Amino acid sequence: MNPRLTVDGRPRHLLDLEHLPAARLQALLHRAQMFAGGGQAPAALSGVAVCTLFFEPSTRTRLSFQLAAQRLGAHILNFDASTSSATKGETDLDTFRTIQAMGVRGFVVRHRIDGAVAALAEAALPGVAVLNAGDGRSHHPTQGLLDMLTLRQAKGEDFSKLKVVIVGDVKHSRVARSDLHALRALGCGEIRVCGPAALLPDANTLRGCVVTQDFDAAMDGVDAAMMLRLQRERMAEGLVTSLEDYHRDFGLTAARLRRAAPDAIVMHPGPMNRGIEIADDVADGGQSRVLAQVANGVAVRMAVLESLLGE
């Protein structure tokens, strides 16, 4: 039996978008849009315990998952690795099994190591769902979904005519990988990827993309620019010459944004390094959808929690 599916063929966990059928992705977006528009699912998770099991810091993802679970009527347990038995040497797997033994049915897991969330999902008991809230630089599926919802709200459901550029530290970005999977699944017309050569991933990750290091050219006529944080905590020294040079070559300024389509939108998963990958007047400007992404995070995570843990 496929460990990702329940006995009746429904998804059991959400570990990535790579294995999520396009129809299922669309269904989640439709449901999330209903929640974003003010629709409710009162007590859909009444009596269900959900644990935010975070082994890595988070603001937007943790809080939006907690709010999403609360709006669905779930009981929420907030795990903080820095104050847990992990500081005494308890393994991640033992921590997971301990909390699972308390009757918790939903685990929202963030981890700094690639594949760590999938490894915990293998230890899940029947009826227990694991949601990947970001693992290493591999996957961040709900971020990918909320980015697609934000793009769809601005540009409509037909992605086939869209030109989207993803810019920056793609190599270390789990967000970029999930966005690329989702954009391909939704039939995006043209996906451009731009960044320093040292910060571009392998060819398989970039399949089907137009790849360039010329940011000005990459912005020409695009409908959306997805900016990425320069993840200095995940990279070796020397991958960028200086932050000033990076901003000069790959920072989104108002002048560069004028090369895009007049109604182009600007996105960023946060946290933003202002003055490095994005200028203040762009981050706070009329074409920015950064806060819309945050708002959509609650709606998307409600849809995902409901789909995996609801009756």
Rank of each mutant, 00 (worst) to 15 (best):
95 T>E: 04
62 R>V: 10
46 S>L: 14
61 T>W: 14
60 R>N: 06
20 L>S: 02
297 G>H: 13
143 Q>N: 02
193 V>Q: 00
260 A>W: 03
311 E>C: 08
217 A>T: 12
204 N>K: 12
121 A>L: 09
128 V>L: 08
132 N>W: 15
297 G>Q: 11
236 A>M: 07
113 I>Q: 14
204 N>I: 09
258 R>N: 14
151 L>D: 06
205 T>V: 14
251 G>N: 07
164 V>M: 05
203 A>W: 02
54 F>E: 04
60 R>M: 09
41 A>Q: 15
231 Q>W: 10
142 T>L: 04
268 H>S: 05
264 A>E: 04
178 S>C: 08
110 R>Y: 15
15 L>S: 04
46 S>M: 12
40 Q>I: 11
175 V>N: 06
33 Q>P: 05
137 R>S: 14
115 G>L: 09
84 S>F: 02
63 L>I: 14
51 C>H: 06
308 L>G: 04
55 F>P: 04
291 L>E: 09
237 E>R: 12
214 D>T: 01
278 I>Q: 01
101 A>I: 07
126 P>H: 01
294 V>I: 14
20 L>Y: 04
91 T>Q: 10
41 A>L: 15
310 G>D: 05
292 A>H: 13
84 S>D: 06
294 V>H: 03
269 P>E: 08
183 L>N: 03
17 L>W: 14
55 F>S: 03
252 L>Y: 00
130 V>T: 04
217 A>S: 13
257 L>N: 03
128 V>C: 11
96 F>S: 08
22 A>S: 12
162 L>D: 13
158 D>Y: 11
137 R>N: 13
220 D>V: 13
249 D>C: 00
195 G>S: 05
74 A>I: 01
110 R>I: 10
279 A>M: 09
142 T>R: 03
48 V>H: 05
304 V>Y: 03
194 C>N: 00
267 M>N: 05
253 T>P: 12
226 M>A: 01
156 G>Q: 03
50 V>M: 02
287 Q>C: 09
147 D>Q: 05
141 P>S: 03
253 T>D: 09
57 P>W: 15
97 R>W: 04
122 E>A: 14
121 A>K: 08
85 S>N: 12
252 L>K: 02
263 D>F: 03
199 L>P: 11
285 G>T: 09
251 G>W: 00
167 V>Q: 01
62 R>P: 10
188 C>A: 04
256 R>H: 13
8 D>E: 15
82 S>G: 06
76 I>G: 00
47 G>W: 00
84 S>Y: 03
259 R>T: 02
215 F>G: 02
266 V>Q: 12
206 L>C: 07
203 A>M: 04
88 K>C: 00
220 D>E: 13
247 H>F: 01
311 E>D: 11
27 A>D: 15
206 L>K: 11
159 F>C: 02
69 A>R: 03
129 A>V: 08
2 N>H: 05
242 S>E: 00
192 R>M: 02
244 E>S: 13
226 M>P: 00
46 S>H: 15
131 L>W: 11
309 L>R: 02
73 G>I: 03
182 A>Y: 10
170 V>I: 15
76 I>V: 15
11 P>K: 06
112 R>P: 14
2 N>R: 02
48 V>C: 10
30 H>S: 13
32 A>T: 11
268 H>W: 07
136 G>Y: 11
84 S>Q: 07
56 E>T: 01
155 K>R: 11
15 L>R: 07
80 D>M: 06
138 S>C: 10
